[in-house]
Amino acid sequence: MTDPQLAAVISERRKLINLAYRLLGSLAEAEDVVQETYTRWYSLSEEQRQEVVAPGAWLTTVASRICLDLLGSARARREQYVGEWIPEPIPGRSEWLDGSYAADPADRVTLDESISIAFLVVLDSMTPAERVAFVLHDVFRYSFAEVAEIVGRTPAACRQLASSARRRIQSSQEPSSEERADVVRDFKRAWETKDIEALIGLLDPRAIATADGGGLALAFLDPISGGEQVARAWMEIAARSPEITLLERTVNGQPGLVAQLDGVIVSVYAFDVSDGRITRIWAIRNPEKLRPWTAG
C-alpha cells in the first residue's frame, strides 16, 4: 500500500540535510542522521504514521534529537582525532560534481551566512544544547516552544541557550564584502609567486592558520599563530609542492581556494577576512572531508 504521506516525507529531505549539517559540521554525518531519521519513520506502523499530524515536524524533531546525542559524544570522539578538527567544507552550487554523489539536489546544502566555516567553527565551540537551540530558532525559525520539545528544556531555558549562542556569533561575525574575494585572490597570487612580503602584508599580525589532515594527509598538527609565521609556513608548503595548482573556488558560500594535484583536489582553504586582512585560514586536507569535491 502506498504511503499517503510519502510526498510530504520525502520533500523534507533537503531541509533535514541542511539542519543536520549545520548542527554537526559534517555532511557525511548529516547524511547518516537523515537516513536514520527515515529508518525510524518507516519503523512506525502504518497506524502510527497516520496519527502524525505533521510529518515534517516529526522528522525534524527526530533528526535534531539524533544530532543532539551525536554532539554529546563528539568530545570523546574528537579526543581520538589526529590534529585539529575543522568542519567539512562544501563546494559552491556550480562546483558540485556531476557524479552520483551530488546528483540529487536534495543532498545539496543551501549556502548562506549560516554555513561559512567561520560560523561553523563558532557553533562547534558551543554546548550541544546551545547549538541546537540557536540553529533551530535563529537559522530555521522554530519557536522556543517547539525548540523546548526537541531539546527537552523549558522555552525560557531555550531562549537563554539561544541568547548565549547568539552573543558568541555576533562577537565573531564580520560584515560581508566583495573585498574578501580580492584579498583571497591577492593571497593566491602571492603564494604562487612565493612573495613572502606580500603574504605578510595580507595577513593580520594575529592571524591563525589551522589544518585538518585527520591523520590521513600531511598537515601541521597545531595551529600556527602570527601573520609572519603563517606566511613562512605557506612558503614552505609552496616549496614542498611546486606541482600544485591553485584555483579560486567558493567554500561554504565564501571565496576560498582549492589545491589540485594531477587534476584531483587535495586541499580546500577557507578564509576569514577583517579590515582587508586575513585573520584566519582553515586548511582541510582530510580526504574523507573532501568527498563532495572529489567524488566522481
Rank of each mutant, 00 (worst) to 15 (best):
83 G>F: 07
82 V>S: 05
110 T>S: 13
119 F>D: 01
119 F>E: 06
73 S>F: 13
80 Q>K: 14
95 E>P: 03
114 S>A: 15
89 P>A: 08
73 S>V: 15
108 R>M: 07
112 D>S: 14
101 Y>I: 09
96 W>T: 09
95 E>Q: 15
72 G>K: 05
111 L>A: 04
106 A>Y: 08
96 W>S: 06
100 S>D: 12
108 R>C: 08
75 R>F: 10
112 D>K: 10
100 S>N: 11
107 D>A: 01
101 Y>R: 13
115 I>F: 04
88 E>N: 03
107 D>W: 10
100 S>I: 12
90 I>V: 15
113 E>G: 05
85 W>R: 12
113 E>W: 08
89 P>M: 04
73 S>Q: 15
114 S>C: 09
75 R>L: 08
101 Y>C: 03
99 G>C: 07
101 Y>V: 06
78 R>V: 01
89 P>E: 02
117 I>N: 01
85 W>C: 02
107 D>E: 08
91 P>M: 07
92 G>T: 02
82 V>L: 03
101 Y>Q: 07
77 R>T: 11
94 S>Q: 13
72 G>Q: 06
104 D>R: 09
78 R>C: 01
109 V>N: 03
93 R>L: 10
74 A>R: 15
84 E>T: 10
102 A>W: 09
89 P>T: 02
77 R>V: 13
122 V>T: 15
106 A>P: 01
74 A>H: 13
106 A>D: 15
81 Y>P: 05
119 F>G: 00
84 E>C: 09
118 A>N: 03
72 G>T: 02
82 V>C: 04
115 I>D: 07
96 W>Q: 02
107 D>C: 02
121 V>E: 02
99 G>S: 11
118 A>V: 00
99 G>T: 04
82 V>I: 10
121 V>I: 14
75 R>G: 06
110 T>A: 14
93 R>N: 08
96 W>P: 05
102 A>R: 11
